[in-house]
């Protein structure tokens, strides 16, 4: 494997603007402590333990709680965040860093959100009657990253809950704000070539040595480099005998061959592909191997030796990929 660098190398101006804004928001520090709507209370604890199915008596049974290490009723630590949730009509305060970052990413097109990590640390248990307030700070914004859900930014915030001046709990919370991929709708055009979702497809690196191959595909030709009597694929700048004076040309393959090996890709998602899909390494009748997707086939029916014919996956005006269909 070669380097899997992160998405930063493709960062655009928009990306830099997001990073700058994130630095500013982080630099503004923690938001003012925002008090919970209600104090810690037994009614909400009861609702919570009913829903979660938690039978721990220290939350609901005064006698058992009195006899426990707590000496009195306490709230479930996992409810800490619940006390300061916004509720049905609540809005985050203006200085809330997650609100500001969310608005910014929404504007940049990263409109979907999913929570990815939550690390909560509880310094002590809360008791009914105590009133908590939460204060949050932006810890970091990383992106754009390509994820299974789409390109997006990871936003990490750190929240501290206070009772008075006492910090009682902390949480590091990470969400992914992502741009949902466009729905895929590969169809077939009149000339039998296939159109696919253009935007996310990975593109080949075209050089003087291989331009004829990619140009040929655009014209519906599967071209194989020829040095005198020898065919070679993938193509390169030198003949097998090392003759610096030699000039290559190409032959147009008949487009028939057999499956030399194959795989069925199930995971992870690949840009522009519907899962699962079959990739076949095909030995052409001319004697060289070429790789491409094998279309319109039940993966269970594919086997080494299966006869196939070349087809052409037209991605857009610039790019057409070699592909295969089963020869009947």
């Amino acid at each position: 494997m070669t380097a899997a660098t992160d998405g930063r190398s493709t960062a655009t101006d928009a990306g830099r603007r997001i990073e700058e804004a994130a630095r500013e928001i982080a630099g503004a520090g923690a938001s003012a402590p925002d008090p919970a709507r209600d104090p810690v209370n037994q009614a909400m604890i009861n609702n919570w333990v009913e829903a979660i199915g938690d039978a721990n008596p220290v939350y609901t049974d005064p006698a058992a709680a009195a006899a426990s290490v707590h000496g009195e009723l306490v709230a479930p630590p996992a409810m800490t965040q619940v006390w300061t949730m916004r509720g049905l009509h609540g809005a985050r305060p203006d200085d809330d860093p997650l609100r500001r970052m969310t608005e910014l990413l929404d504007e940049a097109g990263y409109t979907s959100v999913v929570a990815t990590n939550s690390t909560q640390t509880y310094h002590r248990y809360l008791r009914p009657g105590e009133h908590v307030a939460a204060s949050a700070v932006l810890e970091g914004v990383v992106g754009p990253k390509r994820t299974a859900l789409g390109d997006g930014w990871f936003v990490t915030t750190r929240t501290t809950w206070y009772v008075g001046d006492e910090a009682v709990a902390e949480m590091t919370f990470r969400i992914l704000k992502f741009r949902p991929p466009e729905p895929q709708d590969p169809g077939n055009s009149d000339d039998g070539t296939r159109t696919a979702d253009a935007a996310p497809v990975l593109r080949p690196v075209v050089t003087r040595d291989n331009a004829f191959f990619w140009e040929g595909l655009r014209d519906g030709e599967l071209r194989i480099q020829r040095w005198g009597g020898t065919l070679r694929h993938p193509p390169g700048p030198m003949p097998p005998d090392g003759d610096l004076e030699a000039e290559p040309d190409y032959v147009v393959a008949a487009g028939t061959g057999t499956v030399y090996s194959f795989l069925v890709h199930h995971h992870p998602p690949v840009p522009g592909k519907r899962l699962p899909f079959v990739l076949a390494l095909v030995e052409l009748d001319e004697g060289v191997r070429v790789l491409g997707e094998l279309h319109d086939v039940d993966p269970d029916e594919v086997h080494i030796g299966l006869a196939v014919a070349a087809s052409f996956d037209r991605i857009d005006d610039d790019l057409t990929l070699p592909a295969w269909t089963v020869r009947s």
């Binding site: 593109r203 040595d209 291989n210 992870p268 070429v290 790789l291």
Partner: peptide, 14 residues
């Protein structure tokens, strides 16, 4: 990158 052009765009990418 040139080598990968014969594989990644076709979907051989992991």
């Amino acid at each position: 990158g040139v080598d990968n052009g014969y594989h990644y765009p076709a979907g051989l990418a992991t």
